[in-house]
Amino acid sequence: MLELASNKGERSADPALDTSPLAIRGLTVSYGQKPAVFSVDMTVRPGRMTAIIGPNGAGKSTLLKAALGIVKPLSGQVRVFGQPLDAMRARIAYVPQRASVDWDFPTRVIDVVMMGLYRELGLLGRVLGRHRARALDCLDRVGMKDFALRQIGQLSGGQQQRVFLARALAQGADLYLLDEPFAGVDAATEKAIISVLKGLRAEGKTVVVVHHDLATVRDYFDDVFLIATRKVAEGPVETTFTAETLQATYGGRLATAQVDQLSQALG
């Protein structure tokens, strides 16, 4: 045992770092003076759907962006499937917030989905028929195949969101990170997205979603991660998504009436 421990160094002290699809330790991110995320630990469990929940400005998106290397953390460690992020990029798919891009950009739906094949195609690789077929198949899975040749600005918000999801599917990843995929979408889109995500889970993929709708947490997710700049709680929905943890996460911002309502819904 002693020999094993010395061989593996600090790894054996925290086995989740070696096995979890996404393990974060001591992550602090700051924009200017005020930290957006402070000393957060997170351990995502494989093959499950995890919701990141918290009030506006609680650092949900920032946590995701730091995990993906989009924003630079002040400190902390990120491990993806036991490896540093850069070694595992091919196994991660990302769906940014819909509002983060200019949908007036001159491109078509199919071209956006093809962007998901970048790691496969590389800088100069030729686009072959099978690449196009895969992009179309991903569009089909989100019910957008008929829109392949549309300019992206002609789509509704929900359709744009589905195109982003199709792009992530094209990445063929094992870990899917989605930033507010249900924000401002129609009911049909929400249903289509959740059924695709559940399909991924059935294939053994891991899904992490920044989520804002407390009413659907119980239906959609296996695990929750509650954050208000610092981590509040983490664990299975049944045991962790409670009136107490919600009150601790949202503080006065969540009206007592809402908490009561949720407590009833939670039984």
Partner: peptide
């Protein structure tokens, strides 16, 4: 011509481009 694909992705969606390692 050389950076065509990377330029297009990073101009459209910089955050996504970074997750690809661009």
């Amino acid at each position: 011509a050389l950076f065509w694909r990377a330029l297009k992705i990073s101009t459209f969606d910089e955050g996504f481009a970074r997750t690809l390692g661009i």
